[in-house]
Nucleic acid binder design. Structure first.
Lengths: 133, 133
DNA sequence: CTTGACCTTCCAGTTACTGGAAGCCTTATC
DNA sequence: GATAAGGCTTCCAGTAACTGGAAGGTCAAG
């Protein structure tokens, strides 16, 4: 199977698959006589695993760890859970941060009349105006 | 005033201030005889403006636009509002995305017993197991 | 005179790709 | 047989916004 089909089936751009190979996330592919990469089902499965993990926001390094845990029959589910839990906490922290940005911004946006005049509470805030807050 | 004090007062690392200069976000600083950058209150104010905008999640490019609007007495507050509103929508989109990740992850984490045994719903999910979902 | 705190420039690294150039392989079509 | 389209190859550069570190100049204190 050539890279195009793998890409389609794993929902990843071919470029990204080559990048993962370069990054050592997957083994260098077999090569056909013409030099083209030649894949089997196994690689499609691995790449789908990675695609799914990436779509859950795990970093490429975390994917590397997840893959090695996946392949390790002696793994403890506790290790997987710890990784996922840390990642979950990261996400929750980001949500909290973004919610606080949203609160400030939506307030500023609401207070800006948004017409042809130059007065603007948003710029006033950025400039450090203390009045009216 | 040297860069260290400006950094402290604008709550930005000195390296970042040099970077903003390099990036054209602020004018190249005056130089003292010894070659050190020499700043006045004006630059502190500008850098605070940038710091505040960055802390609200505006990109450096957006900061550039905000600064030029700030300096433009003929600006329309509508332009500022539009920029902030777009940014707000970006943030809301990100929150939505992260909340959906959080939902999936917290479910997976909850379902993983997290002990010494290898069975793991998290890895099963990544591997594309369809059962139990 | 040396130590330490600042300051300078320049280069490299970070994350995870993505775009593009230049060129080979294969297949279909004229 | 020539050629055009589409897929494949490698390699290089760029993205965002810094950050770390090396090598070295400046200045005040002890």
């Amino acid at each position: 199977m050539r890279i195009g089909e793998v890409a389609r089936r794993a929902q990843l751009p071919a470029k990204t698959i080559r990048y993962y190979e370069e990054a050592g996330l997957i083994q260098p592919a077999e090569r056909a006589e013409n030099g083209y990469r030649d894949y089997s089902e196994r690689e499609v499965h691995t790449l789908r695993f990675i695609q799914r993990a990436r779509s859950l926001g795990f970093s490429v390094e975390e994917c590397r760890t997840l893959l090695s845990l996946y392949r390790d029959r002696e793994r403890s589910s506790a290790d997987v859970k710890a990784l996922a839990h840390d990642h979950l906490r990261d996400i929750e922290r980001k949500i909290t941060e973004l919610e606080s940005l949203r609160a400030v911004l939506s307030d500023l946006v609401a207070r800006c009349h948004g017409d042809h005049r130059p007065d603007c509470p948003i710029l006033d805030d950025l400039a450090g105006a203390e009045e009216g807050r």
